[in-house]
Nucleic acid binder design. Structure first.
Length: 952
DNA sequence: TAAGGGACTTGATGGCACTTGG
DNA sequence: CCAAGTGCCATCAAGTCCCTTA
């Protein structure tokens, strides 16, 4: 229910309100809100919360002023924002007082960027709004947010959940958030009263849902064989597994998702209960199986009909009507689209079509806007490469010799190179060898210290680590050094010195810390920025990696080796032909080489000292337009897979029984990649940790268990274990068995296959398709469908929970794990104790209630004191409160337990198309910052003006 | 077509600054 | 005010995939 009646508007937390309201308005209007957010972040007045002051207004004005639509580009916005708050350095035109001038552009040729810019421009103009320079506040005109419309998605009860666990769903954010949000929305309302009108648009759509979801996984799997079972679905021709709605979801997710017992139509009261409690996590963990089974067993079905379309929207009446028509239209259109989401039951092919059409349907100008953006990416025209933008630069025509092929990534590139870690400062603490202090040269001491400080880490005790360290250290000590073996070394003095230093640092006053920080910033500032085609962009890792001991993951054969110090003569620079060559920061030394290769995006690289044939690159930051562009392309490619997935699935299903072994292997491997989101699995050298991906699975990594089930157990990337037992189609099961026969545990399961063959094959099925696209596709499609399916009316906090839940499912699918925090068990214990305590109190209250009803006084309390006499009603109230508390705590505990091994961040950063999130936020009035933090906002700047109706 | 060079994305982790609860 | 807890962010290892070469 997004908005509240005006009357209820309160006035607190002005700051937030102001921020949010402004933010939201612009957001809804299609203005890149990152712009505003960033402004907030970087403006002193804003930071202080002085939004009402003239200073603030002025600064905002000024800020907006910088972006006249003509020159505007998302990256420039971000940059500018960043720049505006930090002093930018020398060489660049960082004059804060003047608007930055970004010149990327005139030459259309250049590329994607331009295109993007254009799109943006277009969109903004269409919208009518935009980063309009002149106004600092949003005008009344604002179109309403599309948002308020009813949730398109589905009103369905959240299905899934419940079952698996006794507890209810994770409230997480819940309580906390809700309060503030409330305020925010109120404020919003206030400010844009007019807007409301539009928003209130009814639109509910009813979406029919897929229904499938509530079925237990097992059920679904079964379905495979006989598709029809499920109600709505038209069964796609495709392989069995895929069934209607499920098709797009990977198997694993199905596992996880299922289990819902849904029911109740109630809106939010039971909302929480319905959410799935992470049933899935276990999948990969040891626990998993039982849980899995359990959940499967329990699940119950969700009523199909449940539609709750929110009429909330209709409920609200428009205050001012106005302008907004366009918006309305938009909303209306939603319907169509809304259906889409639920169209799980529609055959994929149709869906695709639908989506396409809806995409294009720009019913309104506004719509167009988004459209443009979304479709755009591919348009990149590469035609005229030569830009004449700047006569100054025009001469630099030729591309560096190195990689002639590639496409041009930039025309001009200016940067200041890299910064080196400070030279080693000897501390002079003597370590002990056979009990005797030993003097070491600074070089020897440096390496000894690296080892000493790792005393508390796990590496310290690993034999391989010790061995490698010793071998390298010994070289520095020299053959004839007193120290002849590691065993007799005692690094305690150095370790203690290290602890003391740490403590010292901690004890520093905040002023000192601040001063230090500032100093560092001063030194680094010039390296933080690059100017690419006239636009200032943030550099990612401009700090050269300091020397240290190599910390490989898992059982890495090279762990403990000395990663030597990198010097300028190790570094190759890449810079525009006409740009000044960065000065070498270490006097008397020079760069290894300076290139001018505009077909690559790196600014510098050096050879990895641990593995000299590999490189360490310095790239632009994730917020740069170069990165944003490729990010967007990545998601567009994944979206394209939607159009092909049906055929691809049909094809590989057919090939399960192909006579050609290679084909059969390709088919099965593709199936696993698609259904389990496995990585491709390139070959690895012997000097790397022994991990596998799909193509490199060993016979021993897969076990055929009971009927049609495969149990996977292997170490994947970063030596993270993947454990999962999955029911597969019979032909797959048989094929795996056959691939295994006659082989030893450690032989390749897919002996006729490697990633290049697999990818070559995939490319025949869809241009540009590779194995990793499936991961992106499955992650994003899962998020999209879960969001649209599970989002119901409710307050922001509840919606955020829905999001997190979907996010979690994706993390499980991708097997994104994290190590359990050390204090985890203690935390759980503490919670348990508190719950017990509350339960005790509850019991007492119940007794008192009984007594009170009979007119008797309450029992004495623990200390023997007489408690106050309360009316039965009062006691009942207390009981209710206590119950609430207990429930919340149990939920918290459960969530904590569930998430203890799941990392949500990785998928958010790498696999979930941000446009899904942004559009969902717009549709459901969830402030985007509830989902994306500052760096994500910057990284996803390119997705902010997406149409609210966007579907992956 | 296998091997390997090269460029770029993906991923877990640890330190640290905030926030929260007592 | 302090300790515990949390989220953010930089870091750098470890993947993917493309391309060239022999």
């Amino acid at each position: 229910m997004g908005l509240r009646p005006i009357e209820r508007l309160g006035k607190n937390d002005e700051e937030t309100q102001a921020q949010i309201s402004f933010f939201q308005t612009s957001f809804f209007k299609g203005t890149p809100l990152c712009l505003y957010l960033l402004h907030l972040q970087h403006t002193p007045e804003a930071k202080k919360g002085q939004h009402d002051t003239d200073e603030y207004k002025q600064s905002l004005d000024l800020f907006l002023h910088r972006f006249d639509p003509i020159r505007f580009s998302y990256s420039s916005v971000v940059m500018a924002v960043e720049a505006s708050s930090k002093r930018v350095i020398d060489d660049f035109d960082d004059d804060d007082d003047k608007p930055l001038i970004f010149r990327r552009s005139n030459n259309s040729s250049i590329s994607k960027k331009n295109q993007l810019n254009q799109e943006i421009k277009k969109s903004s103009s269409t919208n009518g709004q935009t980063s309009n320079p002149q106004r600092s506040k949003v005008g009344p005109s604002s179109k309403a947010s599309p948002t308020s419309m009813s949730p398109l998605g589905s009103p369905k009860p959240a299905a899934s959940s419940v079952k698996a666990s006794p507890v209810k769903s994770p409230p997480m954010v819940h309580s906390k958030v809700s309060a503030s949000l409330d305020d925010r929305s109120k404020h919003l309302l206030k400010q844009n009263a007019s807007i409301d009108a539009l928003k209130r648009e009814p639109n509910s759509n009813s979406d029919s849902e897929d229904s499938e979801d509530d079925k237990p996984l097992s059920a679904r799997l079964m379905r495979n064989t006989n598709n029809t079972s499920k109600g709505l679905g038209v069964s796609p021709p495709v392989k069995s597994l895929s069934k209607d709605s499920d098709d797009e979801v990977p198997l694993s997710s199905k596992f996880a998702m299922k289990s819902g017992a849904g029911t109740s139509g109630s809106k939010f009261d039971d909302y929480e209960e319905k959410k799935p409690l992470t049933s899935g996590i276990q999948q990969n963990g040891s626990v998993s199986k039982e849980k899995q089974q359990k959940s499967a067993a329990i699940s119950s079905k969700r009523p199909l009909d449940k539609i709750i379309s929110s009429d909330q929207s209709s409920a609200k009446k428009a205050k001012l009507s106005d302008t907004t028509t366009p918006v309305k239209i938009k909303q209306v259109t939603v319907k169509g689209e809304g259906k889409r989401d639920d169209d799980d039951h529609i055959p994929i092919s149709q869906r695709i079509k639908k989506s396409v059409s809806s995409d294009n349907k720009s019913s309104t100008t506004i719509k167009k806007v988004t459209k443009v953006v979304s479709s755009s990416s591919k348009k990149i025209t590469k035609n005229s490469k030569q830009v004449l933008k700047n006569s100054k630069y025009s001469q630099s025509t030729k591309v560096s010799p190195s990689s002639g092929d590639g496409q041009k990534k930039w025309t001009t590139l200016v940067h200041n190179g890299v910064i080196f870690p400070p030279p080693y400062k000897p501390h002079g603490i003597k370590m002990l060898y056979k009990g005797q202090p030993v003097a070491l040269t600074p070089a020897q001491e440096e390496v000894a210290t690296m080892y000493a400080v790792m005393r508390e880490s796990d590496y310290y005790t690993k034999p391989k680590f010790q061995e490698n360290f010793w071998n390298d250290w010994r070289k520095i000590l020299g053959k004839n050094h007193v120290i002849q073996n590691l065993k007799d070394c005692d690094f305690t003095p150095i370790f203690e010195w290290h602890l003391a230093e740490k403590e010292k640092k901690k004890q520093m006053s905040s002023e000192e810390k601040k001063a230090l920080k500032e100093e560092k910033l001063n030194q680094e500032e010039k390296y933080m920025w690059a100017v690419v085609d006239g636009v200032k962009e943030k550099v990612g890792n401009f700090r050269v990696e300091p020397p240290g001991l190599f910390r490989g993951r898992g059982e890495h054969p090279k762990m403990g080796k000395l990663k030597r110090r990198i010097r300028p003569s190790d570094i190759t620079m890449n810079i525009g032909k006409d740009a000044p060559i960065p000065e070498c920061p270490i006097p008397g030394e020079r760069w290894k080489e300076v290139k001018h290769d505009n077909t690559v995006t790196w600014l510098a690289f050096w050879n990895d000292p641990i593995n000299p044939k590999e490189f360490k690159y310095v790239f632009l930051a994730a917020s740069s337009s170069l990165k944003g562009q490729s990010d967007k392309e990545k998601y567009e490619k994944a979206r394209k897979l939607k159009d092909y997935i049906e055929n691809i699935r049909t094809a590989y299903t057919k090939d399960f029984t192909s006579k050609d072994v290679t084909r059969r292997q390709i088919a099965v491997a593709t199936y696993l990649i698609d259904k389990l989101a496995l990585r491709a699995g390139n070959e690895k050298d012997d000097d790397e940790a022994d991990t596998v991906g799909c193509c490199t699975l060993k016979v021993g990594n897969v076990e055929c268990v009971e009927k049609n089930k495969l149990k996977f157990d292997f170490l994947g990337k970063d030596s993270i274990q993947y454990v999962n037992t999955v029911e597969v189609e019979l032909p797959v099961y048989k094929a795996i068995k056959e691939f295994q026969s006659g082989k030893r545990e450690n032989d390749d399961l897919f002996d006729k296959l490697d990633t290049s063959k697999l990818n070559a094959h995939l490319k025949d099925l869809m241009p540009g398709l590779t194995a990793k696209v499936f991961r992106t596709y499955n992650a994003s499609i899962t998020l999209d469908s879960m969001l649209s399916r599970d989002t119901k009316d409710g307050d922001v906090a509840e919606k955020v929970v829905v999001y997190q839940h979907a996010n979690k499912e994706v993390a499980i699918i991708c097997n994104h794990q994290r190590t359990v925090s050390k204090s985890h068990s203690a935390q759980i214990l503490r919670l348990t104790e508190k719950i017990e305590e509350l339960k005790g109190a509850l019991k007492e209250l119940k007794i008192d209630l009984d007594r009170a009803k009979k007119g008797k006084p309450p029992l004495k309390d623990a200390e023997g004191k007489q408690k106050r006499n309360l009316a039965p009603e009062a006691i009942e109230k207390k009981i209710a409160q206590t119950n609430g508390k207990i429930e919340k705590m149990e939920r918290d505990m459960h969530t904590k337990e569930d998430l203890k091994t799941v990392a949500l961040g990785t998928s958010k950063i790498n696999y979930l198309d941000p446009r899904i999130t942004v559009a969902w936020c717009k549709r459901h009035e969830v402030p985007i910052e509830k989902i994306f933090n500052k760096s994500l906002l910057a990284k996803f700047a390119w997705s902010m003006d997406v149409d609210p109706q966007f579907r992956f």
